[in-house]
Design a protein around this nucleic acid. Structure first.
Lengths: 232, 232
DNA sequence: AAGTGGTCTAGACCACAAC
DNA sequence: TTGTGGTCTAGACCACTTT
């Protein structure tokens, strides 16, 4: 309960009240919690106070909101080994975001010459190049350039290239990943990136490059680069 | 300037306006920015709107407030976007786990000879070695070996080495991280690891190594290795 | 005492999703 | 149409720091 005379700010008391119900599993994961209106009436407090409490919990990842629907308990999902470490889609879903991947480019290109170093390849190779823009609704979240070993398009399977790439690699292709290398560098967005990502206010982005090795191969099977505004 | 008819929320416009002045160094570090009252009058907006814009920037580490005095530009620019990408504690907390870090070893060691390559160092260096076992309650989750540049123990600050290391690096030390390299390799646990982690059923683990670079330094500031059972 | 940020209320209108 | 969260205003009083 909330005590208006305790001296403790009401929004702190409400925040703790809600946190307890989450921690003690009184509210199920992904279940809707009382609306702002209901919380106002139940505790006889103003809407701004309710929203201040909720915004803290959203910020800390305990709750997520859906505009026009309600407020929900954020879920802890089971892990699949590598998945949380290599999948952007996975990380976003954990925060209540269901990303949409829009395929911008899809073509076969040859990696040779000075490009070999960037791709960490030892010899010339044709790869499937895929550029996707990842959205949360209408909001662009990231630009993703991925390069697959050509063998991926030679299989008979129909691959869902708009889904999670980590899922394709781990579940559909059942690859035996033996090493993942990754570099993250914060930098300024270039002009194209600013245009696509509509970076407002700041033009700082994180650039992440990732190389995936399978079996005992010396060359990576998969190369990924993605750029994401650093305020996401 | 702020356009009330643009359709863009006023607090977003104000936030971006302020962010630009910070990014372009129009306001010095630790200098006071206009008071909430001044911002209200200047842009003809309500106080709640001003506070909403400011609270975002405080939350993201661009500003800090002093009660009864004013609002100020934060000293270092945050690399907060890094947190989910580099912090094990952060990732675990997102899944509802509040890990406990038990310090197993803590000593100064010299990195030289053949070890230099593993640490990606170019010359001999003394480092602070920290081994921690990370628990979820009684269940051991991971073994973590971290190696800090010696300068970390020369500061006057008392560092909470049982908390999140990413938090120390980003929030306490406010390091300007310029690159993160990481390798993940699945392998079999060795005998010591099996003993500590009590790996049940499977003895497969993920080994993650991570190198953190700050400023323009050629050598990494921080080296981390952790081993985690692959069924977690 | 004056000025700052901290908390809180009541009320309004908008945007989005579901029925 | 209804109910949700999103944005915004005007106003009040409190707590803290400096003058």
């Amino acid at each position: 309960m909330i005590d208006k005379k305790s001296g403790i700010p009401l929004y702190i008391q409400l925040k703790d009240e809600i946190l307890n119900k989450i921690d003690n599993d009184i509210w199920d994961i992904d279940s809707q919690i009382p609306t702002e209106m209901e919380l106002m009436n139940k505790y006889k407090i103003g809407r701004a106070t309710v929203r201040q409490a909720l915004s803290i919990l959203v910020n800390e990842g305990y709750l997520y909101k859906k505009h026009g629907i309600g407020t929900f308990v954020a879920g802890k999902k089971p892990s699949l080994g590598f998945e949380p470490l290599i999948s952007l889609t996975f990380s976003l879903k954990q925060r209540g975001i269901t990303p949409i991947n829009f395929i911008d480019k899809k073509e076969i290109i040859a990696i040779e010459g000075h490009l070999l170093k960037e791709f960490r390849l030892t010899k010339k190779q044709d790869v499937l190049y895929l550029r996707r823009i990842i959205y949360d609704g209408n909001l662009p979240l990231a630009i993703e350039d991925s390069y697959f070993n050509k063998s991926i398009i030679e299989g008979e399977k129909e691959l869902d290239l708009e889904g999670s790439i980590a899922e394709i690699l781990l579940h559909d292709l059942k690859l035996n990943i033996t090493k993942v290398e990754q570099i993250i560098v914060p930098r300024k967005a270039d002009e194209e990136e600013r245009k696509i990502l509509k970076t407002a206010g700041t033009d700082k982005v994180l650039e992440l490059k990732r190389w995936l090795y399978i079996d005992e191969n010396e060359d990576p099977y998969f190369y990924l680069k993605f750029v994401i505004p650093s305020n996401i």
